[in-house]
Amino acid sequence: MAPTPPDDHASDRRNLDWYVDRGMRWIVTVGGVSAIVFIIGIFAFVTREGFPFLFDGFEAGEFFGSPAWRPTSEPNPTYGALALIAGTASVTGLAVLSAVPFSLGAAIYIAEFATGRTREVLKVLVELLAAIPSVVWGFIGLSMMNPLIIAIFDVPVGLNVLNAGLILGLMAAPIMTTIAEDALKAVPDAYREAGEAMGATRWQVTMRVVLPAAKNGLMAAVLLGVGRGFGETMAVLMASGHSINLPTSPFDSVRALTATIAAELGETAVGSEHYQALFTLGMLLFAVTFSINLAADLFVRGVRRG
């Protein structure tokens, strides 16, 4: 065997570039891991503040079974979150019911029918819809929808499930439309061409071929829309009327979980039972949205595998 030429060893040195590359790998890895750190941090800090309440004032039966949220009533505060859960559920439910058909319809139109300029303009408008801040939506509920609902339905107050639900629907629609459109676009054109080659019209192809093929992605879109509505704070706070109620009609005012935290946290002393109870509501919100996002992710993965 020939001896190793000396110049091999000379050039085979770990130079500055090698170490810079190693260093950058570490730095960006830390950046990536920070996402995990933050999500765990959110869980940890919210739990840390809310935890004492779970052992002390918290009773599952009262929390989930009683509509009496009276944290400031002395000497016996009660922490029944049922009305708040019902408030969130009714508003989110109405939002999803009203937004899903229109969002899917819009996604189908944009993905399957619209072309060229129309398509671009519609996409931009949907994006602008998503850009309006939630506090502005709340203001719209307060100042535009409220008088409108009073005038149309002849009710004394226009801040209610209907108002907040429609506002939330408009807020959740862009995310559903965008993700649903992505899911439709992910269906290979070959499917459409095969359908059209058989003489089917565009809508027949859409109904029989594209929608079934995209169903997981559409499901994920709906779930993420639900998550958006569920977690929305300012708009619900301002448009729902913010009174503790088990709603029986869309014209009842309600109060949502998120809005309760936003409205009350400023008035509680750090570490008090009330303060801890609000963090416990936060834990509930975190747990539910975490599950929703996990489920949506599983649906999206299903799309990729399929």
């Binding site: 085979d12 040195r13 770990r14 130079n15």
Partner: peptide, 18 residues
């Protein structure tokens, strides 16, 4: 390469640059 195992390189970038 030149009698030296390519696995022996500590700085692969230097190997590739040649």
């Amino acid at each position: 390469i030149d009698g030296r195992d390519v696995r022996a390189w500590r700085n692969l970038y230097a190997l590739r640059s040649r």
